[in-house]
Design a binder for these strands. Structure first.
Length: 749
RNA sequence: UGGGGUAUCGCCAAGCGGUAAGGCAUCAGCUUUUGGUGCUGACAUUCGGGGGUUCGAAUCCCUCUACCCCAUCCA
């Protein structure tokens, strides 16, 4: 279990713990209380609280309530409820960004005093214009020139409510020409004469997300601030604020993951609201909604939601999870937990003509493979109901249930066979006259009759009538956009389903499996024993024979990709390219890489002056050195062209393998040590002597007989496996060319 | 002057230079008094495309392509 692969966030956390960057990790779940939480929030809750739990840390629940016009306390209740329902504990008080307003305000003043923030008095329209566009730089407002004292005064007045909304704004002074739009002097505070649901009317100014969030994280001692991908661009501000305020360490860092998408589901708060407001659904807890309240009302267990979140993983790729995965989670959870019970959704009367009197049949609540105890008595008499779909006068091939010439077992009871079909004037079947086999009773069956199916049934007089709400997916499209994509049949209400009496009278549970139908939940609001109402949580999995859909053959078409045009080389680059290919005999790809990059070509030239080994030099420079030079200048490098030349010299002299060369290079790039020194101190001279290599190879081969067999069976890829093992055994020092040869030969016989 | 991300099976997703994990879905077979469950097996000669480096590349380099995010006084 411990070897399970970790997601990238947990890996970061582990690294930070190991390096003692933090000695305890703190996360937070920071929703804005402006809507009902949905399964996307569940993912975030599962990540933040889950990570805290896994690493003995702590997770805060924080309401990010910086926008008084959209937020409300009913949402904070729903949010708290969601976290609790999922089984997490925020230990202590719920946090509110609004509780930090004073401190955040003081930080703003500090920024002003540092000359890093200013009061801007441009209008909304102008601010937008000044910001520039994605492809053009912005320009700074003239108000950025205001003196610190003036800024302080103005900001104070803003706070005191002396200005109307939109009159002024506090901005950070960063860079109006930043390629990151978010960094073009981001807004820090805006004037808002609104009542805040917690702070009341104390404030006339409210901090923006970008200012409040990082500081709130910092004040709470958060170490890992985990949010969704769309905040990637905001990370720069996050860091800027915390860095320029030069706060006492440790400070939090932001990490982003992909938000959850599920097909046939809509997750946007705004659009969800639209559904509720247009009465397309019955409130926020409509069981068809992907809200936590919806799932809860539908009958999903917290565990199933958590399992789902764990199952889908955490990554940075935008993705769309199949609803089937969610449905699996709830089935899988309920399968081992919930009593099985008989319910007939669509009753068809069956009279057993040769049965007299009545009896009670003992029936276990759980099937043989669920290790739980419990049973009830099923009343039985000559008049029963079965489901309409369990009888067919003219069955297709492969139909397992009752037909004029096929007997069926009444689950836990007797085998019956059809004697007569009674129809009404419209030709609709209204009753079946059947006979039972007295010696076929479950558990004491001596009839010798083999049936293909055992169906659910209820006794006519004892059965209770219930309402069943059968839910289907809310949308008919895989990627629904809104109301227009609604599935018209997402709710079907069955008013007079019949259920065995024990379910209502004993109420052994709230969730049941109605055998052969699915999992159902006693509606927490509308259910009463006089008027029982059940929600269908999810159907049972149906295998092919039952749904008898033709398997679809999807042809795989390889997409043809048209390459775009490559930017032409400049004249200088062209000349270099010429030289590289003609004089130095470099291949055109390497020559191209070198010629197009000033830093690389300069580096290469210098190295070449040290050692006339153009190809090997060019190769390592266009590959390894290029990586380093992506983010650095030549003078920032810890190593020189001369050292690279030295390294290549060792390869040329066959002192070391290219594999070792990479190791040496890494070390050199990190420490700046001389390659020769590294090789000597670590004893990395390569081993090419077969006399030394052969015994090692022998040992590896002995240890992996099954892989030898597979290799001989034609899996030639395994050669790489053996080479890898041998190289590992020699700590990388084996000459891979020689090892390859030797292993190849040895494996043949 | 654009920048920041992402791409591995139908859907998620591991993998960090040495045998392409796992789950969902699907398809077989066995078990089954649920057409459920369970068990067994099948399911990527290949990692968005093309090159290059290497004995060896999903992993390193170059390049192209596609998709997502950013120009709210929202978060």
């Amino acid at each position: 279990m411990e070897n399970k692969s970790k997601d990238f966030l947990r890996r970061v956390v582990e690294k930070d713990l190991k390096s003692n960057k933090y000695n305890k990790i703190v996360t937070r779940f920071p929703p804005e209380p402006n809507g009902f939480p949905h399964i996307g929030h569940a993912k975030s809750i599962s990540i933040n609280f889950g990570i805290a739990k896994d690493y003995q840390g702590h997770c805060n629940l924080r309401m990010d309530d910086t926008n008084p016009t959209t937020e409300d306390t009913q949402y904070v209740e729903a949010l708290k409820d969601a976290v609790e329902w999922l089984g997490f504990d925020w230990e202590g008080n719920v946090r509110y960004t609004s509780d930090y307003f004073d401190e955040i305000y003081n930080y703003a003043i500090r920024l002003i005093k540092m000359g890093k923030a200013y009061v801007d008095s441009l209008g909304e329209e102008e601010i937008r214009e000044y910001r520039g566009t994605v492809k053009s730089v912005g320009k700074r407002s003239k108000y950025a020139e205001r003196s610190i004292t003036e800024n302080l005064e103005l900001f104070e007045k803003m706070k005191n409510g002396e200005f109307s909304e939109g009159k002024h704004i506090l901005r950070a002074k960063i860079d109006m020409s930043s390629p990151n739009m978010k960094m073009r002097d981001p807004l820090l505070y805006r004037i808002r004469h609104a009542h805040h649901f917690r702070a009341g009317d104390k404030w006339a100014i409210y901090p923006m997300y970008d200012f409040a969030h990082c500081l709130s994280d910092y004040m709470e001692g958060v170490t890992h601030s985990i949010c969704t991908l769309e905040f990637e661009n905001n990370r720069d501000i996050y860091n800027w604020v915390l860095d320029t305020l030069s706060l006492n360490p440790p400070r939090p860092y932001q990490h982003e993951f992909a938000r959850l998408g599920i097909n046939y589901t809509m997750m946007s708060k705004r659009k969800l609201l639209e559904l509720v407001e247009n009465d397309a659904v019955n409130g926020w807890d409509d069981p068809r909604l992907p809200t936590i309240a919806g799932y809860k009302r539908r009958g999903y267990t917290p565990q199933s939601i958590l399992n789902f979140c764990e199952g889908i993983g955490i990554a940075k790729a935008n993705s769309m999870v199949d609803v089937a995965q969610l449905e699996f989670s709830i089935r899988d959870d309920l399968n081992t937990k919930v009593p099985r019970v008989l319910c007939v959704m669509n009753p068809l009367k069956v009279t057993i003509t040769n049965y007299q009197g009545s009896e009670e049949i003992e029936a276990s609540y759980y099937p043989h493979d669920v290790p739980k105890e419990g049973s009830r008595k099923l009343p039985f008499s000559k008049e029963i109901y079965i489901d309409r779909s369990d009888f067919k006068q003219n069955p297709d091939k492969g139909y397992f249930r009752l037909t004029p010439n096929q007997a069926v077992r009444l689950k836990y009871a007797y085998i019956i066979s059809c004697q007569e079909i009674i129809k009404d004037e419209n030709g609709e079947i209204i009753e079946i006259k059947a006979e039972y086999y007295p010696n076929s009773k479950s558990g004491e069956d001596k009839s010798g009759i083999k049936v293909k199916s055992a169906i659910q049934w209820v006794e006519k007089n004892a059965a209770k009538e219930i309402e069943v709400r059968v839910y289907d997916r809310l949308f008919k499209n895989e990627a629904p956009q809104g109301i227009e994509d609604l599935n018209p049949n997402s709710l079907q209400i069955i008013k007079n389903a019949l259920i065995e009496p024990a379910v209502i009278t004993d109420k052994p549970d709230e969730r049941f499996q109605f055998e052969r139908e699915g999992y159902f939940y006693a509606d927490p609001i509308d259910y009463s024993s006089e008027f029982p109402v059940f929600n269908k949580i999810v159907g049972l999995k149906e295998s092919s024979a039952k749904k008898k859909k033709a398997p679809q053959v999807v042809e795989k078409i390889k997409k043809i990709q048209i390459d775009g045009e490559v930017v032409a080389m400049s004249e200088d680059q062209e000349a270099l390219f010429e030289k590289y290919t003609k004089e130095d005999k470099l291949n055109s790809e390497v020559a191209n890489t070198l010629a197009r990059d000033k830093k690389l070509s300069a580096f290469y030239q210098e190295a070449l002056n040290e050692l006339k080994s153009p190809i090997n030099l060019a190769n390592i420079i266009s590959n390894e050195v290029a990586r380093e030079l992506k983010s650095k200048e030549i003078n920032e490098l810890k190593f020189s062209p001369k050292q690279i030349a030295e390294l290549i010299k060792m390869i040329d002299d066959e002192l070391i393998s290219t594999k070792i060369a990479k190791v040496v290079y890494e070390e050199m790039a990190k420490s700046g040590k001389n390659p020769k020194q590294i090789v000597e101190s670590k004893g990395l001279i390569q081993i090419s002597d077969p006399k030394i290599l052969l015994p090692i190879i022998e040992e590896i081969i002995d240890k992996n007989p099954d892989n030898v067999e597979k290799f001989r069976g034609g899996n030639t890829k395994l050669l790489g496996f053996f080479v890898g093992q041998v190289l590992k055994a020699t700590k990388g020092k084996g000459n891979p060319k020689v090892v390859n040869l030797l292993v190849g030969e040895r494996l043949k016989d």
